[in-house]
Each structure stands twice: as C-alpha cells, then as structure tokens.
Design a protein around this nucleic acid. Structure first.
Length: 453
RNA sequence: GGUAACGUGGCGGAAUGGUUACGCAGAGGAUUGCAAAUCCUUGUAUCCCGGUUCGAUUCCGGGCGUUACCUCCA
C-alpha cells in the first residue's frame, strides 16, 4: 500500500515518518537473547513486536527488500556464571537455551529472521573493531583490558538523554582500578583458565557486552542502517554503547536512524525481570494455551506501553480466538487488505487498533459471504493469527481433555434420555458434571453438541 | 538526586482541538424445559488546578499519583 509507516523513535522521542535509506534494501537489527536461561514472556514481547514490524515493512516494500537480523549472544559473564551454577559446559548451556528459544519463537508463530548470527562466530571482526577504536584514540589498553573512552565521543548520552556529569554524579557506575574514568566500558577483558577465551593482540580473553551487536549489524546491514530495536531496558547502557562503538569505529555520523523500543511486561505493575523473581516462562503456557493466545495477548497493548500481565487476559484472548475460528476459512488466493484496515499497523504498530478492525471484519464475515470470511482470515493471518487450521486449533484443546470422547457421548445420550422423560433434574445434573470436567453442552436445533470450555 | 514515560467507563485498551473506537463484564429482550451458544438493544469515562482557545480529555505550565532507567535486564 502507498501509505506511510510511522514509528516512535527513541532517538529524539517523537513519532516520525519512516523514510528508508534505500527502499529496496531496508535493514532492521533487533537485539536477541543472551542464552543463559529459559526465555520468559518479557522476552517474548520484542519477538512478537519486531516480527510484526518485519511483516509491515515487507508489506510496504516487498518481502525481498527487508533484511531482519536478530543476534544470539552466546558469550557473556552471565553465561559463564549460569554454566557454573548448573554445572554444565558452556556449549551445552548455550545450545540448549538456543534450542528452547527457537521452540518458543515457533510457538509464538514468529517468522525466522533473515540472519541470526552468533557472537562466538564473530570474534575476529570484534577484535578488528577494537583495533580501529584504539587507532582512533577512542579506546585504550590497561592491564590487558581494553576500555572505550566515553569522554572522547561527544554524542554520548544522546539516545538515553543522559549527560556525563549526571552519570558520574549518580556514581552507580562500576569503579575499576583499570579504568581511566568510571563511565568507560569494557571492550575486551582477559579470561581465567576456566573461562572461554580467544587469542587477541592483548592476550587471551573475551569481548565485553555491546560489541557483538555493533559488529554483527555492520556485517549484515552496513555502517548505517534503518531500524534498531529491542527492549526499553537496553537503551542504557547497551544501545548507547553500541552507538558509541559503531560511530567511532566506522567513522560515520549515524548508526541506526530509527530506534524502536518495546516497553515491559509487568506483574502487579512491577517489571517482570529475572532479578525480581517474578518471571513467567514461555514454556509454562505451552500445555494449556495455543501459541496464538499468547501472541494475541502480547498484541493487546501498544508496544510502547507497559503490559500488565494476568490470567484473565489469556482467557479473554483464548475466547476471542475461539470465536474467531468460527469464521476461519483457508485462503489460497491473494487477497489485499483494505488500506484503511491496515492503517493502524502502519501507524506505529497500533495493534489494539488493528484488533478492533479484526472484530469489525469478523462481524461482517459471520453472516457474510465466503469472500468476507476470506478477507477476515487474511487479515488475521497477516499478524500471525489463525495461521493453522481449525482442526489443529480444536485438537490442541482436546489434548488437555480428561474424558474420552466416547465417555462424553455416552453422558450426552444418558442426558437426552432423561430429557425425553422430562427428568430435568437428572439432565441438569449430568450437564453440570460434564461442565465440572470442562465440557460445555449446547442444545441446538434439536441436537446436542459439546465443546471444550 | 538526575532522566523519561504514563494517569481514559466496572476491567482491559485505542484515538482525538468540537461529533468520544474496540473487547470483556453488566442490564434488557429474542430463543430455550431451564441453560449454554447465538442474535438484537443498551448505560457508564478522559487524575487535580491554572493558561492558550469560540471550544481541551487532547496543546502549555504547575501539582498529585504510578512506573521505569541511571547496575544485569527484553
């Protein structure tokens, strides 16, 4: 469609019209997981948000014009710590968590990004970037550590609205004897024998956090690209440091043009975080809910707002999808979604606005023609919903059933006999028994049907 | 302390300088042995105080409240 895409840009803090550097080669880099622990639903939010942005960009510019890069950080102090705690090797841990992460992505019905580079496959270019930074006097070595010299980058703090004086005044920055200044951050550090290491001009060691994203975005998207995404908590210091490294090493004016940050999932209004101990794992939902339910729940609030989590939300989304599946038809032909219907998504990924559109299309489809149903189904599919057959949706629900189908049918027959004798007391008793087991009875057009509640 | 974001009906949640989505729950009705499901109808809101304006929930200033970031975090 010809309408413009708008995005809230954290750099500047305003909603802006999206103008790509090259509309045939659009680049989006999103910070992926550090693979040290099971993914939780807070991690799920950016997966869904940027999957949607990927879809919207492809819709406007063509599927071949958009490159989506999402990294896997598989070397980090948290990983080292976690592997020691779990008493397994680092590679066993990172491979295992990466596998779980991919399963969760699939469960959430997220498309596979164009590239998914790993940090450990990119140590050489990281070392090269450090060399460039040292050459440009943006980094210095001290006692086998390499640090980025923040004072030499005048734009530092622009993304996060911080100035150096405040940072130092806050003085929560880690003090280290090796640093020239407390705000400096590490690019390379030496490893002990029991820690992973790579040889470098500064001895055996490993990269600091932040560097992998600067290097891998450069590798696939170039020195300056269109969109950089991630959770709000990455703005400082992670993204601020990425900008500093990339701009100084690549000698450019800009790193990413648009910075898009999703807000948090909260529980009782408090941020869900591992350190808070209030996380809900994605895998916790796999048995009870189809992945689409979680996906819809994550889209029920605009990405820039906090999303307060509760079970009522999941149940509501489950019911909505159940209702929507009544109008689902497989679509084999190409159907264009009306520009006006698509508009909320183009306007800064307004998912609640688009969900309202889906409700309208559903109302029309429900008593409408096959074409109305096809339009509705296509619109759902566009945001990754109703992407599997109704049979599959139903069979998922059946897997949690405590009664066999045969038992249910027997009970229904028993109840119908009672009804014929006008023994409504017994009939209602049987109905309530089934209801307790999650089976809902409906007498419709002279027939009795059952559903899973 | 510094820097931001947010405050919309019973709940969730968009949008908007004037006509005020959408979902859930509620109420009434159709239907039903009674229900359920479905359908129809329907009520209810913009934290407080100033300012700008013919008009502000929307813009500006102040206040109150909530949250986040400044340390690992999506």
């Amino acid at each position: 469609m010809n309408k413009d895409i708008f995005l809230s840009n954290s750099l500047g803090g305003k909603k802006e019209k999206f103008v790509p550097i090259d509309s045939k080669k659009i680049g989006m880099y999103v910070c992926g997981p550090t693979v040290y622990d099971d993914p939780h639903i807070g991690n799920a939010r950016p997966l869904v948000v940027f999957d949607l942005l990927f879809k919207v960009l492809k819709c406007k510019y063509g599927s071949k014009s958009v490159t989506y890069v999402r990294n896997i950080t598989d070397i980090d102090d948290k990983i080292i710590k976690s592997s020691k705690e779990k008493n397994i090797s680092i590679s066993e841990l990172t491979l295992n968590i990466t596998k779980k992460f991919h399963e969760d992505c699939k469960y959430l019905n997220c498309e596979i990004p164009t590239h998914e580079p790993k940090a450990t496959d990119n140590i050489e270019p990281m070392i090269n970037m450090i060399k460039e930074l040292i050459k440009g006097k943006f980094a210095y070595e001290n006692n086998k550590h390499i640090y980025f010299k923040v004072k030499n980058f005048s734009d530092y703090g622009k993304l996060s609205n911080k100035n150096l004086d405040d940072l130092i005044a806050g003085s929560r920055v880690e003090l280290s004897g090796n640093k020239d200044s407390p705000e400096d951050f590490v690019l390379w550090k030496p490893s002990n024998d029991d820690e992973p290491s790579w040889s470098s001009p500064w001895g055996k060691g490993r990269p600091g956090w932040h560097l992998e994203c600067s290097v891998m975005s450069k590798k696939y998207l170039g020195n300056t690209f269109d969109i950089h995404g991630g959770g709000r908590d990455l703005i400082f210091p992670h993204h601020e440091n990425e900008i500093a490294q990339s701009v100084c090493a690549n000698k450019t004016k800009k790193f990413a043009n648009y910075w898009v940050h999703n807000n948090f999932i909260t529980i009782s209004k408090e941020k869900m975080a591992k350190s808070q101990g209030n996380i809900l794992k994605i895998s916790d939902y796999k048995k009870k809910y189809n992945g689409q339910v979680l996906r819809l729940a994550l889209m029920s609030t605009h990405y820039s707002q906090p999303l307060d989590w509760n079970d009522k939300l999941m149940d509501e989304c489950n019911r909505t999808l159940d209702k929507w599946y009544n109008c689902f038809v497989p679509v084999n032909k190409k159907i264009l979604i009306d520009d006006n219907d698509l508009k909320p998504l183009y306007d800064d990924l307004n998912t609640p606005g688009f969900i309202a559109v889906l409700h309208k299309l559903f109302d029309k489809a429900k008593d409408g023609t096959l074409e109305d149903k096809e339009i509705f189904s296509t619109a759902c599919k566009f945001i990754g919903l109703l992407d599997q057959s109704k049979d599959k949706w139903d069979s998922f629900k059946k897997q949690n059933l405590k009664l066999s189908e045969n038992d249910i049918l027997k009970k229904i027959e028993e109840r119908n006999k009672a009804r014929d004798k006008k023994d409504y007391e017994l009939a209602d008793k049987i109905r309530n028994e089934l209801l307790d087991k999650g089976i809902l009875i409906e007498d419709k057009d002279g027939k009795t049907i059952w559903k899973i509640k």
